[in-house]
Amino acid sequence: MTDSVEAGRPSAGRHTVALFASELHLVFGRARTWVLLAVLAAVPIMVGVAIRLSGSSGDDAQGFLGQVAGNGLFLVVASLALSLPFFLPTAVTVISGESLAGEASLGTLRNLMTAPAGRSRLLAAKMVALAVFCLAATMTIWLSGLIAGVVLFPVGDVVLLTGTTVSLGDGLLRAFGIAILIAASLLGLAGIGLFVSSLTSTPLAAMAATFGAFIVFGILGAIPQIDVIHPWLLMYGWTSFADLLRDPPYWDSIVRNLLLQAAYLAVFYAAAWARITSRDING
């Protein structure tokens, strides 16, 4: 039955985007998020200043770090690589652990449910906001690394891992691509965090459990006796981003990593969905 009140209302489904925008506002409207991003932005600056002050050409340093003094652009890549094992996963763990458990602990989850946000839609909005955060995190490092690199070091044409020299613009674009690839590499972990967050009303517990899972993956990856399962571990393909610095880029491991992340994301997103759509909202 319809009454005059409802007739004056816009039809359902018209303003679906509003919740997604609101979700971004929730993530990026918090001081905590900006502290995390500030820490990430500090990584290239710290690394750059340290290399600059040491005064050594860094020829004896390994990998990307050794090339920073010669070409500031490598500060971007080196910083992304340095943040990947710890800083970035920590940031993703904090934000994803908070996502649903934070709402449950504040009690705002019931307000959203009765609004009604729709459980599936709320979960989708949470995941989209998480993905945007992952991208914002790596882009922060990219931008901060670029600025610090240009200020502290000479910048010029880029010598790739394959020995080919490409223009600065090409190098920048590849570094940008690396930032995107690393953001995508974090999505599996974000999915795990979202799922764990759907299980509890205590955000801190969700963060701890998610980080715990991350550490377990790390430990499993360090045990050579079980190397049969290594290719299926969350972080197995995380270093594949370096293949973008070959000419031509070596896509196989990059694509494999993206597929693995997609699989982790799909499994844990589905689990989170099953949980949130059946959960009694008592908080």
């Binding site: 816009p10 359902a12 489904g13 018209r14 303003h15 509003a18 609004a115 729709g118 839609r121």
Partner: peptide, 15 residues
């Protein structure tokens, strides 16, 4: 801001 968020969650609410 709180009011705006809960209203945004309702897709029938006119922004």
């Amino acid at each position: 801001a709180n009011l705006l968020r809960f209203d945004a969650a309702d897709r029938t609410a006119d922004p």
